[in-house]
């Protein structure tokens, strides 16, 4: 048995105006991965490849140790997948949808479904077409969660939700943390949601994975260092610096492999280090993207 819930190796997919390039991704079982990228970065395409809805031009996709898309029926039996574009049947109510999904998944948990119904404040009898966008997303999430899947794949689960609904959904995702056998991959362009509950974080931009690491390493390794230089002469950055901004004798440097030695090295050069600030995931993501894009232009 493989310990990886998801494994993509050298996956490529070509479209007319977009290419997914050499995607390598591993998600160990029991972990939560946040998949972050701008709109159109390739998040949904990657997720479609993982779900076997699309065939890669080259490379290998394996989910729960099974090859995709060949084993899609077996895999989808154990995976709860929900995406932004999915719609339920407007002329039917949630109760009808629950009966339909329940008939397909033998592990359906009625008690859990009832709890979710209460916590999400959803009405069983009301037709789906009368649901607000938030209610619609929550209804779909209920249908996915109560199947008790081993792997949850959620494409933009909180996009378009109002703050109240977003909190409800985030709280529900947090409750999943309690179960160590469950793996979650969720994509978002909202870094605040991702930052809180993810163990692993993967950044994707323009069809390529630009960084993947565990969250604590991300937050530890990336720092913004505030410097005071001895002269207005342009600063020669030290260590693995990915961004330098200087105005007169004040400089701000973003470093992606921070350790104390960097500070010492600056001090040796007679540079005053005012602070080494933590960065939010959003700042790290943006710095990362800008750095890569600048590199592509060169």
């Amino acid at each position: 048995m493989s310990d990886l819930a998801i494994q993509l190796t050298g996956v490529n997919k070509h479209f007319n105006y977009f290419d997914l390039k050499d995607i390598n991704l591993e998600l160990p079982k029991g972990q939560i991965m946040g998949f972050v990228g701008a709109n159109g970065a390739g998040k949904s395409t990657t997720i479609r490849l993982i779900m076997g809805l699309m065939q890669a031009d080259s490379g290998q996709v394996s989910v729960m140790g099974m090859n995709m898309p060949e084993m899609q029926t077996q895999v989808k039996q154990r995976v709860g997948f929900s995406s932004e574009e999915m719609k339920l049947y407007g002329s039917k109510n949630l109760g009808w949808h629950i009966e339909f999904i329940k008939s397909i998944y033998p592990h359906w948990d009625d008690k859990y479904a009832k709890e979710l119904l209460g916590r999400f404040d959803l009405n069983l009898e009301q037709n789906i077409k009368q649901f607000s966008k938030g209610q619609h997303i929550k209804a779909q999430l209920l249908l996915v969660l109560a199947r008790k899947p081993d792997l949850l794949v959620l494409d933009e689960p909180t996009t378009g939700l109002d703050p109240v609904a977003r909190q409800e959904v985030n709280q529900e995702l947090a409750l999943i943390l309690n179960d160590e056998s469950r793996t979650v991959l969720f994509s978002s362009h909202n870094t605040a949601d991702v930052e809180k509950i993810s163990d692993q974080i993967t950044f994707i931009d323009r069809g390529a994975i630009i960084n993947t690491d565990n969250k604590e390493s991300f937050l530890d390794n990336w720092k913004r260092i505030q410097l005071e230089l001895p002269s207005t002469h342009p600063l020669t950055p030290l260590g693995s610096t990915i961004n330098v901004e200087q105005d007169g004798r004040i400089a701000s440097v973003i470093c992606n492999q921070f350790d104390e030695a960097v500070i010492e090295a600056y001090k040796q050069q007679n540079i005053k280090v005012h602070a080494a600030d933590n960065m939010t995931l959003e700042e790290i993501f943006l710095a990362n993207v800008n750095y890569r894009r600048a590199g592509e232009k060169v």
Partner: peptide
């Protein structure tokens, strides 16, 4: 660690740390 992570809505890896 899991109970704590789940009840405060923070990732397991962070609570572990």
């Amino acid at each position: 660690i899991r109970e704590m992570a789940s009840s405060i809505g923070v990732s397991v890896i962070t609570v572990k740390r």
